[in-house]
Amino acid sequence: MSEQPMIKARNLWKHYGDNTVLERINVQVHAGEFITMVGASGCGKSTFLKMLLGMESPTYGELLLDDKPIPDEPDQSRGIVFQQYSVFPHLTVLKNVIIAREFEHSPLLGKLFGSARRQVHEEATELLETVGLADAANKYPHELSGGMRQRLAIAQALIRRPRILLLDEPFGALDPGIRNDMHILIRQLWRKHQLTVFMVTHDIKEGFSLGTRLWVFDKLRRDNQAPEAYGASITYDIPVGRADPEELEKLTGLHDPSPVLLRQASDS
């Protein structure tokens, strides 16, 4: 881990019109951290990811990447996997991965031919092997199961070698067994590709076991007459390598967290 933090949020606020979504976010993230984010539905986790991605910009405050404002457009330095719609339905598995390299090397047609194509083929096939999709290379996304589709989305997100990988409830729709496989996969890839990972999840167990650091998003101030007046911030920032699950259950139980969070905490 380098000395300088890679990402810094300084007094970050986000409003949508009168709706305050996020307020007073102050965090620093070093390269190589794996951050999991939990919080009630609608509290702004996806919004935070969107700001990291450059789809949304902060209303106040700064969000810095390497001490420069984060680029205000998505680019290949930050990969993303959404819960769904992440892959291209008109391309086969292999072509879904290759397309990233084609964008890179063929500005006009977005397509590669001949030896350049073969080379990219090899690279993509290798990547598909690491996510366990080599056998499905010529299938279309609609022929894949939910878990396979997310593996594809991950492979696709990794081929351009991004430094940062953003995951928005990537395994939300998967059943527990497959989810476990995906956890192992994502940890492998995180190490192998030296990624900095931000992952939103609704599964608090996942939040614990997976990353190095857990953020809980919640509103510190609350006005029941005007629920939109105050935004959420990061109320707990826990190095989960060390935390013990019961400790967190107590912590999250203290501050009237969301019903969702409570339920999930007691489930686990």
């Binding site: 290949q76 990969g79 959404f82 992440s86 291209f88 964008f103 500005p107």
Partner: peptide, 14 residues
């Protein structure tokens, strides 16, 4: 999501 995905793969508008 698809358009954003394409941008994170480095695609231009064209």
């Amino acid at each position: 999501e698809q358009l954003i995905k394409a941008q994170t793969l480095g695609a231009s508008s064209w």
